[in-house]
Write a protein that binds this DNA or RNA. Structure first.
Lengths: 142, 142
DNA sequence: CGAGAATCCTTTCCGGGTGAAAGCAGATCT
DNA sequence: AGATCTGCTTTCACCCGGAAAGGATTCTCG
């Protein structure tokens, strides 16, 4: 693979910025005994290698009225519906994350919705493509 | 709930920083016709309301040698094992995310592992607490 | 209605973080 | 040994972020 080029120092820096990407390079540098500039150069390199893909925030869906957090496994009914399903899921605002997973015609996705009704509406649309199994998130532990 | 205090401008700002949290306040301000300082004040407020929980980074597990991405649903065998299971999952490095989900004794978790062997070792430990269903991620689509 | 308060914006200003450039030290190769 | 490469430190200029002050608009209550 192409994971040859990261060393232990890079890895420690990455842990710090996964935890809090607004730590300054200088602060990280103090933890690992380096100047901020050296840390900055390593971070830049990890971005170029696409180990770091981008910067984002952790946000709270509930505080935005997204009270439903559903983990859905989808079983497509035929091979023909893969393309339209992918398009559907990628464009639908309720779908926060989508993966191809092992198993016949299987996808996994994370869905946020305002309430049960919005989820129902979504599931109705989903039925066009195949069956599904839903698990509702009841609390994040990690 | 307590989602009364976010307006449409806040929401747009949030979309921008979810997409890229390193956009400057000034850049965001230009998009929505505001000064950077005003944007900064709104972001600060969203942090105080804990709508924004923290800053982090999107990273690529594969480039770090984490070639296995598993979605695991866990069915605990008895009520007694909830506490030890939670402790186990929270402390185990392979577990990247953990949620309580609907259903009897159910949890959902995201697990990264270097290879099949590391996953097997993990699953062996998991068996101590109950049964599980594993789906392996084959490609992220969204 | 009108005065005061509250809210939220803009302007101004300072501290300091970021990234570029240059210089240096240690490792590697011939 | 000499050349080269890599990765660190130092220095420096730019500009971002946050605080403070001032102004416009809306809200509140006598």
């Amino acid at each position: 693979m192409d994971n040859y080029s990261i060393d232990d120092i890079d890895y420690r820096i990455l842990q710090y910025i996964i935890e809090d990407s607004r730590l300054t390079q200088k602060e990280i540098g103090e933890k690992i005994h380096m100047t901020g500039q050296a840390v900055g150069a390593r971070i830049r390199r990890m971005r170029e290698l696409e180990i770091i893909e981008g910067y984002t925030v952790r946000w709270n869906p509930q505080k935005l009225g997204q009270n439903i957090h559903a983990f859905i496994t989808v079983f497509l009914s035929s091979n023909k519906v893969h393309p339209p399903f992918q398009k559907f899921a990628q464009e639908h605002v309720n779908v926060a994350e989508l993966h191809r997973v092992s198993g016949e015609g299987c996808y996994w996705m994370r869905v946020y919705a305002k309430d049960q009704e919005e989820l129902s509406t979504f599931l109705d649309l989903l039925l066009e493509f195949g069956n599904y199994r839903v698990n509702l998130g009841m609390g994040k532990l990690k």
